[in-house]
Design a protein around this nucleic acid. Structure first.
Lengths: 153, 153
DNA sequence: CAGAGTCAGTTCCTTGAAGGAACCATCTTG
DNA sequence: CAAGATGGTTCCTTCAAGGAACTGACTCTG
């Protein structure tokens, strides 16, 4: 990955990027979310180099985003599953999908549609305030220093 | 950046990554959003190499995420501002912040707090369904092929 | 029971992007 | 007129991504 490590910055964006900011990581997450759990399937589906896939999977397991489950002993074989931490990361994917659908899909329209279980309709995500439930966009907020604002040293 | 180009994939996640998936791009977007508009300020604040900053800014302008505005002729000097397309990308940053605050902030607490204009409260973003307004998580949906599902060739 | 196939890696080499420092060009200020 | 500010550009080094071949442990088929 990049040489500059983002993990140590006092910024939740940088720290999130440290976990899934490397190329391929969000796409691996997407495929695991969509039901692809095994090394060979992931490699073929993505067209990613086996070396990089190994590195990414190990990193994501180390970070607690994915978990390995043994589905065969002799030979030992693991599949990769989302943890709670990883499942919440998928929210990020939904927002990326929304932006990509709006701004990059063009005339062809969105490549994938999303049907919400609760209402059964084809829909997309919207961002709302956790307090008042009104829409909350980046332009609707003020930034204030929080308790973790000071760098560790 | 990575050698494999994501932009051509029939996937809105990959296409979004093609625009801001490279290292530094989301942090540049964050700083421009937070009010840092000039080259020198961005470079110092991020600690990014000047070469890479030049490349990223040009790419983001080319993609229509940032716009250049001349604030001085003789010598020609531009500042970088968000477009509508870029402003909507900042929604992604809010979701990254939310995840980073929950899973990486640790005991120190979140480094930045967000006050929603509409209600004045410190809050965070939640994902809701655009149709029924109920919470919408990655686990609450089915995926269906959309009109743009077929690769261009 | 030999040979092919599956699966999950590992190793090796090449290429190209990131880091970092120095340099440049154009103005402004003291 | 020398410094400083500003926004780049150039150059070199280092390290990560791509890609192909190889390994090792099994299983399946004739």
């Amino acid at each position: 990955m990049q040489r500059t490590q983002f993990g140590a910055m006092a910024c939740s964006i940088a720290r999130t990027l440290d976990v899934i900011g490397e190329p391929w990581s969000p796409l691996i997450l997407r495929d695991v979310y969509a039901g692809t759990h095994r090394f060979e399937q992931l490699q073929r589906g993505l067209g990613i180099s086996r070396k990089v896939l190994t590195e990414r999977l190990n990193w994501l397991v180390e970070q607690g985003v994915l978990a390995q489950r043994e589905y065969s002993a002799r030979p030992v074989r693991h599949e990769y599953l989302l943890t709670d931490k990883g499942r919440e990361l998928c929210d990020l994917l939904l927002v990326m999908v929304r932006w990509g659908d709006r701004w990059t899909a063009g005339d062809a329209g969105p490549p994938v549609l999303y049907r919400h279980h609760a209402c059964g309709k084809i829909s997309h995500v919207e961002l709302r305030c956790s307090e008042c439930e009104q829409p909350m966009r980046a332009t609707d907020i003020d930034l204030l220093p929080g308790p973790g604002a000071h760098p560790p040293s």
